[in-house]
């Protein structure tokens, strides 16, 4: 309003530009236009766009970096899982092996023990037999001595004198027994006539 009032006053004062057609440029304004866009362009080109583009690049990089990081983490997790699975398989295999070993070992121990026990029993049986044999021998020897002495006693009683020294001297009883054992003497019915 007030501006327009002032303008009308200027126009009345006969300013050549006021009555000029509006599509003819006023040169100082044209120059100011160049200066204005020039200054703004310089500011935008040197101070604004580089910063914004840098931020955009950083943003894109951050997003891509995030994706790459996630992919890396995923790969690491997968590697860890593989590793774990491999370890598990190893452990399982090892456990099986240990079990097999233990079984084989146990079987071996049992076999050894059995063999040892058998050997021991054989040894015991053998020694028992030996002892029995020795005792029998001893019994035979003592019986033979006893039989000889009794026979001699009996004979002495019949003859009436001690035959012990002579018998011992001549080994009659031993010889007799030996013959008896050898089967050269047949049992004779005592007091019998028909032999």
């Amino acid at each position: 309003m007030l501006q327009l009032t002032g303008v009308r006053a200027l126009a009345a004062s006969g300013d050549s530009q006021a009555s000029a057609p509006p599509i003819l440029p006023y040169l100082p304004e044209l120059i100011f236009g160049f200066v204005a866009i020039g200054i703004l362009y310089w500011v935008v080109k040197t101070k604004v766009v580089p910063n914004l583009e840098k931020a955009y690049a950083a943003r894109a990089e951050a997003i891509e970096g995030g994706i790459a990081k996630a992919e890396k983490a995923q790969a690491e997790a997968k590697a860890a899982l593989d590793h774990y699975n491999a370890q598990l398989a190893d452990a399982r295999g090892e456990a099986n092996k240990i079990r097999e070993d233990a079984r084989a070992h146990a079987a071996q121990i049992v076999a050894e023990m059995r063999a040892q026990a058998q050997a021991e029993s054989a040894r015991i049986v053998e020694s028992a037999q030996k002892q029995i044999e020795a005792e029998r021998q001893q019994a035979v020897v003592s019986l033979r001595g006893e039989v000889g002495r009794l026979s001699t006693d009996l004979a002495s009683r019949i003859v009436g004198e001690s035959l012990h020294d002579e018998t011992r001297q001549k080994g009659i009883v031993e010889r007799f027994l030996a013959d008896l054992e050898a089967g050269e003497i047949r049992p004779v019915k005592v007091g019998g006539t028909d032999s």
Binding site: M1, Q3, L4, T5, G6, V7, R8, A9, L10, A11, A12, D15, Q17, A18, S19, A20, P21, P22, Y26
Partner: peptide, 16 residues
């Protein structure tokens, strides 16, 4: 009126 503001004219755009 005082000079007449109406209607506005192209001269009104010249504002030194």
């Amino acid at each position: 009126g005082d000079g007449g503001h109406f209607p506005p004219t192209p001269e009104g755009f010249w504002q030194p």
